[in-house]
Design a protein around this nucleic acid. Structure first.
Lengths: 191, 191
DNA sequence: GTCTATATAGTGATAGAC
DNA sequence: GTCTATCACTATATAGAC
């Protein structure tokens, strides 16, 4: 029980630090300081740093799956569910302006490192893509569902990158208004 | 003269390596191997690694300024100049799919590192923003010029990020078609 | 202007005491 | 399950020979 707790603490701390400082720039010393354990103690819980990364990506996948599932339950229409996704950039505005999108920046970093876990990181993006595709299908645009999904996903990545660069709140809100208006146009067309 | 050549070689090699592998992950040994000089020889040309980064960012700024200036001369209308910008994602498709956008990924990395040169890196993005704003002003939409500029810039960052993740050529081409169509709509509205 | 040799500090990872 | 001590390696950076 205590072991599980420590392992969890390590993964949670690594998750935060990988986000705010990047994977390769985060050292065991950094994580150790956050969890308040010794560096050597890591290796009781994980064989290597890559194994911690793997656990972090797994946790992020779980977290996002749960988030999407909660929208599936709470939001009534597919359009309102897509709107939930769009509004992440507002809900997480402060963190995005500081560190960018956790999914996009990790994917980009692992691809540059040519890291073994890059495909697994891509799965988080694929998770969003598939979920969005399903929403657009339910919305009625069967033939363009995947195209629309990629469009919304691409939009969110662009907004996150520019939000991080210019820290412009009104830009983010304006972009959200525009894409929601685009979404409503699609919704009405398919009625 | 020979000094200038070596310095140039270092900056050029560092530029490529910072793009393909990231700044913090690129070591002096990597650059030394590319330029075929000894590690120690660096410090005759640069005081530190940060100084090399500074030179690389400066070079990238110069390169982009020249690129934009060439479009100012060759392309006749503001709309066709904006189209030149949009089509970078097709012209540089192969590299973008492998390493993402050189501007966006460097900005993101330096922000996470909280690096002293992050503001200077942001200037490249600001250069694009200002240039695009000028084009939209010339195009006639004075009140929305900066909004449109940010929209196009944001679009390009999103497309680059997703191109890197999914390596989908048709996605890139479709997104280009859509944004060009959006641009033409604006162009006609202002006639 | 370029080299070799080296200083110094950090990294991931291991061994073994408790 | 956690610790300290330590290893091997790599990093940036410096000093001084050529």
């Amino acid at each position: 029980m205590a072991a599980k707790t420590t392992r969890r603490q390590i993964v949670d701390a690594a998750d935060d630090l990988f986000y705010s400082g990047g994977f390769s720039q985060t050292s065991f010393a950094d994580i150790a300081a956050a969890v308040k354990i010794s560096r050597g103690n890591f290796y009781y819980h994980f064989k290597s740093k890559d194994e911690i990364l793997d656990a972090v990506i797994g946790k992020r996948l779980d977290d996002r799956e749960k988030l999407l599932a909660s929208w599936d339950q709470t939001a009534e229409s597919p359009a309102s569910r897509i709107e939930c996704f769009i509004k992440i950039v507002i809900v997480n505005q402060a963190k995005i302006m500081a560190y960018g999108c956790p999914v996009g920046t990790l994917t980009a970093e692992l691809t540059k490192l040519d890291h073994a876990s890059k495909e697994k990181a891509n799965k988080i993006m694929a998770l969003f893509r598939d979920w969005l595709t399903r929403q657009f299908e339910e919305l009625g645009c069967v033939d363009f569902a995947d195209e629309h999904a990629l469009h919304v996903l691409s939009w969110s990545q662009g907004v996150a990158t520019l939000a991080q660069t210019f820290k412009d709140e009104t830009f983010v809100q304006r972009e959200v208004r525009q894409i929601v208006s685009w979404l409503n146009d699609i919704d009405q067309d398919t009625l």
